[in-house]
Nucleic acid binder design. Structure first.
Lengths: 180, 180
DNA sequence: GAAATACTGTGGCAGTTTGTCGCAGCATCT
DNA sequence: AGATGCTGCGACAAACTGCCACAGTATTTC
C-alpha cells in the first residue's frame, strides 16, 4: 500500500543458490531486485514495493508458480512476469502465458536471455522453424505433463489415466530436465 | 462480410490426409467444418462463412501458422484458435498463445483431445469432458508411424530423427502386428 | 475434529526393455 | 566394381518397469 521504494525485479525461486546468483548478476547490471522463496513472500513484497518485473519459478516447493502468477496479476496487472523453470513443458508454458506471463524459459538460461525475454520481442520465432519432429522421449514428456496438469498435479490419477504404474511415473517425473 | 452460412470448425493444415481425417471425425460428431490448405484459403473462408473455432497447423508450407493466427484474430477477434502441430516447441507454443491461440497441442492428438482443448475455457455445448488420454504406448506408436512415413519407411533415418536406437525401433516395429 | 481415504516418497527385487557391438546380406549411387 | 547405407538378427550388460510394502502427509467424510 505504501509503495515507497521501487524495485526493478522480483525473483521468486525456492532454490536460494540460484536466486542469489541471479540477483548478483542483475545487480551487476545496475538493476535492483528482491528475492522471495515462496508465494507468500512474493505477494508480500509486491505490496511493500513498487515492482515492474518478476521472474518466477514454476516449481516452488508446495506452491505452484502458475497459481502465483495469477495472484500476482490480480494484485498488480501491470507486472511483467517471465516464468523460468527446469521442468519445462509445453502445457505449463501455455498455461503460464494464459495466466499472464509474457514469456517462459527453460532453466539453464543465462541472465541475458532472461532480460531479453522481457524485451519487446516476437523475434525468436522466425529463426528456428524447426522441422525436426519431437524425439520419442520428448513427446512422452509433453504428453505426461499435459495429462498431469489436467489432473491438477495428481500423480496417482495421472498414472491411472495413462495406464502406467505410479512408481514408473514418479521416476520419470523426477528424472527429467529432459534434453532437446 | 456476408456471413450466410455458419460453420463450427475451420481446419487449416497443409497435409490433406490429416485434414480429411480430422474433418471426418468432427462431422461424425455432428460438427460442420471447412478445410483450408494454406493461409490464403483460410482468410478467404473466414470472410465467406461465420466460423467460431479454428484448428491451425504451425507449419503450412511456406506460410507460418503463427502469422496466420494473428491475421485471423484481426479479422475475427472472437475466433477461438487451437494450434496443433507435429513440430512443437516451447517457443512456438508461447508465441502462439501470445498471438491469441487458446491452446496448443502436439500432433499425435485424437479428436477428443482437440475438442477438450477448446472446451477448457470456452464451454462447448454438448460436451462431456470425459475423454481418456491416449496411453503412452499408443502415442508413441502413432508418432513413430508418422515419422516413419515421412522418411519413406527408412528405419535408420527414422530412428535418427526420433533420437532412438535403430535396434530399439526395429524391435518396436516388430512387436506390433503392423496394422491399426 | 476424528476416522477413513487417498496421495506421496522410498526402498528392494525380479522380469523386461534398451543401448551397443558385431556381422552378413541386399540395395543404391558413383 | 567399390563405396555407402539400410536391414535383420544374436548376444549381453545396463537401465527401466512392474509390483509389493511401509510410513508420513493431505484430503474427505461423517
Amino acid at each position: 500500500m505504501s509503495n515507497q521504494s521501487a524495485l526493478d525485479f522480483l525473483i521468486v525461486d525456492d532454490d536460494p543458490t540460484f536466486a542469489a546468483m541471479l540477483e548478483r548478476a542483475l545487480k551487476r547490471r545496475q538493476f535492483s531486485c528482491a528475492i522471495a522463496q515462496n508465494a507468500h513472500q512474493a505477494l508480500q513484497l509486491v505490496e511493500r514495493f513498487s515492482i515492474t518485473k518478476a521472474i518466477v519459478d514454476l516449481k516452488l516447493g508446495n506452491d505452484s508458480g502458475l497459481q502465483l502468477i495469477r495472484e500476482l496479476k490480480i494484485k498488480l496487472p501491470e507486472l511483467q512476469i517471465v516464468m523460468l523453470t527446469g521442468y519445462s513443458s509445453i502445457s505449463t508454458a501455455v498455461e503460464a502465458v494464459k495466466s499472464g506471463a509474457i514469456n517462459y524459459l527453460c532453466k539453464p538460461a543465462d541472465t541475458d536471455e532472461i532480460l531479453a525475454a522481457f524485451g519487446q520481442d516476437s523475434i525468436s520465432e522466425l529463426q528456428e522453424m524447426n522441422y525436426t519432429p519431437l524425439s520419442v522421449d520428448r513427446l512422452e514428456w509433453e504428453h505426461i505433463q499435459k495429462v498431469l496438469q489436467e489432473n491438477n498435479g495428481n500423480i496417482s490419477a495421472t498414472a491411472r489415466a495413462l495406464g502406467m504404474h505410479r512408481r514408473t511415473l514418479q521416476r520419470k517425473l523426477q528424472k527429467r530436465p529432459v534434453k532437446q
